[in-house]
Every structure is written in C-alpha cells, then in structure tokens.
Amino acid sequence: MTALPMIKKEFRELFTSYKILFIPLVFIALTITQPITMKMLPTLLENATGLPEGTVIEIPTPTAAEVLATAVSKFSTLGSFILIMIVMGSIAGERASGVASMVFVKPISRAKYYLAKAFTYYILTIVSMLIAMGVTAYYTEILFGDLSWLHVWTGTLMYIPNLLLVVTTTLCASSYFSSAVSAGGVSLVFNIVIFTVPPFLGTFLSMVSPDALTNASMAVLRGSALTEASVTAAPSLAGVFSLIAIFFFMGWYLLEKQEI
C-alpha cells in the first residue's frame, strides 16, 4: 500500500495548515446563522424604525425542520465556494512550486498521488459537513423545538454527494491547470452551470441533476417520508455519482498525461 505515505502527508498538511479546524468552523458559522437569523427576525423587525405606531407584523414561526432545510441550502452557494478555494491549489499549487517534479520522479504512481488527494479532501468535506449540520441541528432544536434526528442525518448524508462533486471537479481542474486561480475560476463557473442549468433542460436532465438532489435532501430535512423521498432521490443520486466518477477519472487521466 504505497499510497499510505502520500495520504499521511496530506493529513499532516490538514493539521499544519489548520484546515482540519478551520473548515468545520467556517461550515458551522455558515449554517448556524440560519436558525439565529430566523429566531432574531421578529425582534429585528420590531426594532426597525419608521413603522407606524401599533403596526402588528405577523410572521409565522418556522418549524425546526424548515429552518434546518434552509440551512443545508447554504452549501450550494458559499459552502461550495469555500470548497473550491481549498481544493483548487491542491495539485496545481504543487506543480507551480516545483515540488511535484520532486515527488513524481519517486516511485509513487500519479494514480496514487491523485487518489490520496481525492481521499483526503473527501474525508475533510464529509467530516466538516457532518459536524456543521450536527451542531446546527442541535442549536435549532434548542431555539425551535424537537427535530427528527433520523431525518437530520439522512437529509445531510443525501446532500454530501453534491459537495463531493464540487471537490472532484475542482480537483480535476487542478490537475489540468498549472495555476490554482485558473483551476478555481474554471471550476467555479462549471459548478454554477451544472447546479443551475439542468432544471431548464427537460424532465430527464432535471431529474438526474445535482439540483434535484438538493431538493430531495431539503425535503427529507423538512420531514417528508423516507420511503417516498428515496424514490425521488434515486435518479439524482445516480446522476451525481456518475458525474463524480466521470470527473474523477478525467482528472486522473489528465494528471497521467500531464507534463510536470
């Protein structure tokens, strides 16, 4: 198992760069603002000036499940952007600094190098996401009342493939471009397209799109029945995992052919 030294090195970098602490914290900050702003909204509106005396604003208090469903949607914007920022330099940066040419003349295949990077960032993403949603769900429960934890974890797990897709496409771009910024830019544009355009491209493409997976995950978090949700989620899961596989192998192929 000669990929092990590479994986060890990648994990060590997560610690020396504090990514292992920073990413979960930023993810928590991202999601936990949702229950907080929802809770504060009535107070904020009350304090707003310029309202005539005696105006009564009726805002229906959202349910805990509803709050959590909107929290997960934060990952499709800012959360994805942060992931792109972290992953974009992972290969491109090492090529630019020249350290890749020191590593690739050693008996570590490019496949293992690539695999180690993907594995590490997958783990970082999954763990950070689980921690963030766990903490946010816990706090939402305190502020808004009980949640079904089975739905919380199922909905969260269902969303994870979307994040892995972001990581994979960025890694793929990073193995093609020799500048981290170009890799990040291309990945950003690509992800915006693939997350927003398919719903307008007919029933089939919208059914297998990452956007459909986001919707399915939000539906589960809102509390829809799991059996029913799994039926609607299945095509989109298949679609997203296919995309992950395609870009994973494409990135690998590009790195294999790459001149260092």
Partner: peptide, 10 residues
C-alpha cells in the same frame, strides 16, 4: 444568548 454560539465561533 441566541447569538452566543456565533460570537464564540467568531
């Protein structure tokens, strides 16, 4: 109290 977790995070 509601905002406290955010402050701690910050």
């Amino acid at each position: 109290q509601i905002v406290l977790p955010l402050i701690i995070l910050q």
